[in-house]
């Protein structure tokens, strides 16, 4: 554990908490992509199957359980409790266009051809692109509430901080995982346009609104 990794995990946790607060306080999931939330739930479940096979640390187990349970809770809030506020019409990204290629790529490029390892690899590839339905929704509506922007900023920062963690670990421990590094770089790049808007608009007190 190093400072970048811890900051990344805390940023990830903050993102999830911000999202739950937004939905709970406003009693609405308007502006949030249910498709992205479903993809994240698939990511956590397929990645954290090692909960039952490998014990790494109390911290590791605790965080995995938190990510799985909060992601299920988010889906419950969106599709059951506050279903009436869910923006079906704008959330029209076809997730099979992400799920199928990620799974095929995981079958082709993986660390080991075993069920758990393929699912882990699939989850890494899928996480890299899981935010696309959300970014697509923001581009369709042309705006995002400020708390939704904070959520996206924290979520994007998490993998960017992991990139620093991987650089640190490569030099400090000689540890590296090319699949995670490659996918993490793609994941971070996808947020760059949003980061730019966040820094130039939201941090200056303006609403995140895309140019018409």
């Amino acid at each position: 554990m190093n400072i970048f990794r811890l900051a990344g995990d805390l940023s990830h946790l903050l993102a999830i908490i911000l999202l739950l607060i937004k939905i709970w306080k406003t009693r609405s999931c308007a502006g949030i992509s249910g498709k992205s939330q479903i993809l994240f739930a698939i990511v956590y479940v397929s990645r954290y199957l090692d909960l039952v096979t490998t014990f790494i640390s109390v911290y590791n187990t605790f965080m995995k359980l938190v990510f799985i349970s909060t992601s299920v809770a988010t889906i419950y809030l969106m599709y059951v409790k506050f279903k009436a506020t869910y923006d079906h019409n704008h959330d029209s990204f076809r997730i099979e266009f992400l799920l199928v290629p990620c799974f095929l790529l995981a079958l082709l490029i993986n660390n080991a051809f075993t069920p758990l390892e393929i699912l882990w690899t699939f989850s890494i590839y899928l996480e890299a692109v899981a935010i696309l339905p959300q970014l697509f929704l923001v581009s369709k509506t042309g705006e995002a509430e400020s708390i939704t922007s904070h959520y996206l900023f924290a979520l994007g920062s998490y993998r960017a901080l992991y990139l620093l963690n991987w650089i640190y670990r490569y030099y400090a421990e000689g540890h590296y995982d090319l699949i995670a590094i490659f996918a993490g770089a793609i994941q971070t790049i996808l947020y760059c346009d949003f980061f730019y808007l966040y820094i130039t608009k939201v941090l200056k007190g303006k609403k995140l609104q895309l140019p018409a």
Binding site: R47, M63, G174, D177
Partner: peptide, 10 residues
């Protein structure tokens, strides 16, 4: 692709 079997990251 990796030097370790266990994935210790989240």
């Amino acid at each position: 692709f990796s030097d370790e079997d266990d994935h210790d990251e989240l």
